[in-house]
Design a protein around this nucleic acid. Structure first.
Length: 452
DNA sequence: AAAAAAC
């Protein structure tokens, strides 16, 4: 099923949600449902298993919270154990989902609890004893509680995987399978992401879901119309650092998010910008939980306006005022890139995303361009212009290619590349189907040669 | 090759 955002918007009251939920929506002045909410809420209420694809910042969280809360509010089950379990990939995202849940459920008696690493274990045992209807959790700590028999999912009605492709990838899938195995079989399972590719994970999905319906909202990764995307070619990291400082000092933004591919480099960039007197913080998985919380709070309420982070901050986080995203290192895949830049341009706002591209990131960048079916705008800063102008033009078939004057018509060049790519892909499709799984998952991988 | 998620 494919929905278009061009249909007239639906007013929340038409969904006939429970009056106490409607009251919370009114209070927060949410009058119109977003397209993903409009498409998903009725289907969840019908009891279907769903795979939902919708772009970053389109309102997916409320799309699963509202129908869950509505159903629970209309069907009280005071003696039931956990009724809804929501799994997310990071602690920060868990806190955010909890906050949204508490807001929407504010006029009901429904309760939500949070179970993540880093927080006090015994305190969480107490939370679980109170038996809230909804649990929001990261997999690792939840499994510990499960092993200690602190949980009971034998009555579970809803299992939700937020950032579902991430939750089912290699890093998380063993934990996910263990958790899903303990959940009541007659439950309803909902998968949400901006970059979900059901074909790439057939077996996992069959294990977790029953007769799922797929809902795909248009423009998941095709358009990103409200995010202006640019690249800057850079010689090396020192050059990138000069570009970074320049951008942070000359661009106008309320908040900026800078992505680095490693924790070490995130720390390094933080120190660099901090020494320059910028209001900056850093976030990565090697920091203790208290510090992580503190930095997030400070970024949220504007005490710092620049956050340097690893991919811990790439998915799901909804921080008001992030108008600039800088990829100091290019994202490792097209999907990672989509999630990173999706921290800006949320809920119809405008945003700017700039990737600094070093000589060894050229191939990565162009494979992401092909994956997104887009061409990034090249930008350079006069005062900081580097010497590297991109890769040397490679000749097509041994004919003269040395002359720099000879410019290839851009459209022709694109066509040539497209043909080349199609041929490669045809070759791949003829291979046995088992190869397709990993190839599709990685985002840009289909365009790369396999390592035999 | 590397981020995240457990203690």
């Amino acid at each position: 099923m494919i929905f278009s955002a061009e249909d007239p918007p639906l007013i929340f009251s038409e969904l006939a949600l429970h009056e106490r939920l409607q009251k919370a929506l009114d209070q927060q002045q949410f009058t119109q449902a977003t397209p993903v909410q409009e498409a998903t809420i009725p289907e969840v209420l019908k009891g279907k298993d769903l795979i939902v694809n919708a772009e970053t910042g389109s309102g997916k969280t409320a799309a699963f919270l509202l129908p869950m809360l509505h159903h629970m509010q209309n069907n009280p089950a005071p003696r039931s154990s956990t009724r809804g379990l929501i799994l997310v990939p990071t602690r920060e995202l868990a806190r955010q989902v909890l906050a949204e849940c508490e807001k929407l459920a504010g006029f009901t008696w429904l309760k939500a609890g949070i179970i993540t690493g880093g927080d006090d274990f015994r305190h969480q045992v107490n939370t679980l004893r109170k038996n809230p209807e909804i649990l929001i959790a990261t997999p690792g700590r939840l499994l510990e509680h499960m092993e200690n028999s602190n949980t009971d999912f034998s009555d579970l009605e809803y299992l939700v995987l937020d950032e579902a492709d991430r939750m089912l990838d290699f890093g998380f899938s063993p934990d996910m399978l263990k958790i899903a195995d303990e959940c009541r079989e007659e439950r309803q399972t909902l998968l949400f992401s901006a970059t979900m590719k059901p074909k790439g994970m057939g077996e996992l999905i069959r294990f977790v879901l029953t007769n799922p319906e797929t809902i795909t909202l248009s423009t998941a990764r095709d358009k990103h119309e409200n995010i202006h995307q640019q690249i800057m070619l850079s010689d090396d990291n020192p050059h990138k650092e000069r570009l970074l400082s320049w951008l942070l000092k000359h661009e106008t933004f309320d908040k900026a998010l800078v992505f680095s591919n490693t924790r070490d480099n995130a720390e390094h960039l933080f120190n660099l910008l901090d020494r320059q007197g910028l209001q900056v913080g850093v976030l990565h998985g090697d920091m203790d939980h208290k510090h992580r919380k503190q930095i997030m709070n400070r970024f949220q309420d504007g005490q710092i306006n620049i956050l340097v982070a690893t991919d811990v901050a790439a998915r799901g986080l909804d921080i008001k005022g992030v108008q600039l995203v800088i990829n100091f290192d290019m994202a490792r895949s097209g999907d990672d890139y989509v999630h990173r830049i999706g921290r800006t341009g949320r809920a119809g706002e405008k945003g700017l995303a700039i990737a600094l591209i070093g000589p060894n990131e050229w191939n990565l960048m162009s494979s992401i361009e092909r994956y997104l079916k887009t061409r990034f705008e090249k930008r350079s800063i006069k005062e900081l212009r580097g010497s590297w102008k991109g890769p040397k033009k490679v000749k097509a078939s041994g004919k003269a290619a040395g002359s720099k004057k000879k410019k290839i018509n851009k459209k022709d060049a694109d066509k040539t590349k497209a043909r080349h790519r199609v041929k490669k892909n045809i070759g791949k499709r003829r291979k046995p189907a088992e190869a397709s799984g990993t190839a599709v998952d990685a985002g840009f991988e289909p365009l790369r040669r396999k390592k035999s």
